[in-house]
Design a protein around this nucleic acid. Sequence first.
DNA 1: TCTCCGATGTATCGGCCCGATACATCGCAA
DNA 2: TTGCGATGTATCGGGCCGATACATCGGAGA
Lengths: 203, 203
Amino acid sequence: MLELAILGLLQEAPMHGYELRKELATKLGTIRAAISYGTLYPTLKRLQTAGWITAAGNADADVVPPLTSKRGRVVYKITAEGKERFAALLAQAGPETYDDAGFGVHFAFFARTDRATRLRILEGRRRRVEERREGLRDVLSRASDRLDAYTLELQRHGLDACEREVRWLEELITNERSGRSPSGPVPPEESVPADPGPPEDRH
Amino acid sequence: MLELAILGLLQEAPMHGYELRKELATKLGTIRAAISYGTLYPTLKRLQTAGWITAAGNADADVVPPLTSKRGRVVYKITAEGKERFAALLAQAGPETYDDAGFGVHFAFFARTDRATRLRILEGRRRRVEERREGLRDVLSRASDRLDAYTLELQRHGLDACEREVRWLEELITNERSGRSPSGPVPPEESVPADPGPPEDRH
DNA sequence: TCTCCGATGTATCGGCCCGATACATCGCAA
DNA sequence: TTGCGATGTATCGGGCCGATACATCGGAGA
C-alpha cells in the first residue's frame, strides 16, 4: 500500500524522506495522519533493493538535487522500472484494494488511473462496504438483546457511516459512467492538473 | 487493544478461540470485520504467560467446561489478576485510546466503565477528531490548487466524516453529563444488562 | 457400513506498519 | 561559545494481518 503511494509521489518529483512524509500526509490525510519513519525508511530500502527507486546522497551523486544542499540528505528518484511497477499496481485490484487504507491510496491516484479501472475499484469497494453494512444490520436486528446500549450505539454509528459511504460511492460511479469528473459539472476535457491519462514512461 | 477486548469478553464467560473470534466480530463489527487467527492465538499465549488468563483442554482440566466436550478444544478463562488487569486497562487512557481502533474497543466496553472515565475518553477522542478535521480543512483551503479533483474529493469526504463524528461525540458527551444512557430518554436507573457501575474485583 | 467432504477448531510463518528511541547537523539566540 | 530547537536519517521490538497447514467431527451418499 505504502509502496504505491511512494512510487506515485516520486513520479511527480524526486524527494528526500522528510519531504515524502510531508507530502504523504497532505495527500493521504484522510487515510492516516502521518506515516511513521519506522515504516517509511524500511520501505524505501525495500524499493531500492527491488530497483524501483534510486537513492542519491548530495556528495556522491553527479546530479545536483534542486533543494538546498545539506549533508546527510538522501534524495530518492523513481526509475523506469519503478514507473512500470507503479502502473501495474494502479491497474491491478486485489482484495486488499478494497479495505479502508488500500482503497484510499488507490483513490488518491485516480487522476492517473484509466476510467475502466476506476469503475472496477469503485464497484469493488462498494461491494465491500455493502457487506459490512449487511453484517451490521444483522447484528442490530438479531443480537440486539445480547448487547448493551453502548455497543448498540457503536454499531448504529458504524452502520450510518457505511450507508453514507455507499451513497457517496454510488454518486461517484454515476459520475464516472456519464463521463463527469468527481463533483464537477461535466468538464470540457480532462480536469487533471498536469498529466492526463495513464503514465507512459518517458523520462 | 485486542488484549482489552479478549479480557472483556472472557469476563462474561469462558470460551475457546473460535467462539472468541465470533463474539469479537459481533461486538467489534464496526472496528474490524473479524480478528485474524494469526493475531488471536499469539495474543492468547501472551495473556497466558502474563497470568491474565488460563487455558484448559478438556482432558487435563479438573473443571468440566460447560460446552460440548470435543477433543482438541482449548477453553480460556480469565483469572483474578486478569480481572484487575481489565479494570486497569479500562480506566487508563493513553494516546492510543483515541485512535479509531483504540477508541472503538474502549467504547464497546463503556457499560463496564465509570462515568468519569467515559467522559474523559469521549472528550479525548473528540479532540483527536477535531485535530484531524482542522488538518483536512487546512489542506482544502491552502493546498487545493496543488491537488487533483479526486484527491480533493477524498479529502472532502474525510472532512465530512470528521464533522459527523464530532457531532456524534458531542451528543454522547451531552447525554453523559445529563446522566442519560446513549440515545435513551433518561433511564430510571442504569440500563446496563447485568453489572452496573465499575467492576470491583470480587471473585 | 464405509468414504468423502465441509464445518469446526488450533496453530505457525513471513511481512507490513507503528511508536519509541537514538543520533547527527544546522541556524540562531543568549 | 554554548546550548537548543528544527531538520533529517535510521533502527528496534512488537502488534496485527493474510496465507497456510493440520487435525477432528458429523453427516450425505455409494
